[in-house]
């Protein structure tokens, strides 16, 4: 399956990768080969649901609803580039269309 330059740009956008215009032909060719290989694997007749249900441990393990983690904010934030008042700071994700109290999960 041949990908187009537009596909590469869209994939780069979704992955938040900034790629140079002159690299696009190379990525187009390499990614197309990867997709071809995946299609080759897809052609192998395997029922993945059977594989999962045939495993030794078919059920996901469950844990009791107890609090086992302690507050390690200082340690965990030690590798963050920017923090303030206990918050991780990132470049502003607010634009003029976004209300300031935006708070939702997709």
């Amino acid at each position: 399956m041949a990908l187009t330059a537009a596909d590469i740009k869209q994939i780069a956008h979704l992955a938040r990768l900034n790629i140079a215009e002159h690299d696009i032909p190379l990525y187009t060719e390499q990614l197309s080969r990867i997709v071809d290989f995946v299609e080759q694997m897809n052609a192998v007749p395997i029922d993945f649901s059977t594989l999962i249900s045939a495993s030794d441990e078919p059920n996901t393990p469950l844990r009791a609803d107890t609090v086992t983690e302690i507050d390690q904010r200082e340690l965990l934030q030690s590798i963050a580039p920017h923090t303030a008042a206990g918050l991780y700071l990132v470049p502003s994700v607010l634009d003029d269309k976004t209300p300031k109290d935006i708070d939702y999960v997709e």
Binding site: A84, L87, V90, P91, V93, T98, I102
Partner: peptide, 28 residues
């Protein structure tokens, strides 16, 4: 079932958003 995301605070720090991940992973 799914997990909740964290919260973004936009007002406090000019040019930055503050991220509080206490809510991240809360069951929904």
């Amino acid at each position: 079932l799914e997990e909740d995301a964290g919260k973004s605070l936009h007002d406090t720090f000019p040019g930055s958003s503050g991220i509080d991940l206490n809510r991240a992973g809360t069951p929904l």
